[in-house]
Amino acid sequence: MNRDDILTVVRKHLAGVLDGVEAASIDPARSMKDYGANSLDIVEVVSASMRELRLKVPRSELSKLTNMDGLVDLLHKVATEKSATP
């Protein structure tokens, strides 16, 4: 699973909770709040993404993130560590 795969999943779930936002147009340098997502939407997007990717990241680490790039990087790091674990 590469970084782009993860970004595609996050974009898909964010577009799913917002009206009139195309997944491909979502800029990962921005935050979900910039696109009008509220705190409940963000929990839903992050959780749905983690479930689809079969990853789990402690919420304490998620709470430090400021934009979607940060989320994708973190998920990618966890995925890489997971795949390296025998």
């Binding site: 929990v43 959780s47 983690m50 479930r51 079969r54 789990k56 402690p58 919420r59 304490s60």
Partner: peptide, 22 residues
């Protein structure tokens, strides 16, 4: 004690009728 309800919202990975093990 560092965890709270926000850590388990995702539920079980496969079965919604099962509490997540963690």
């Amino acid at each position: 004690r560092t965890l709270n309800l926000g850590d388990f919202w995702q539920g079980d990975d496969l079965d919604p009728l099962r509490a997540p093990p963690d």
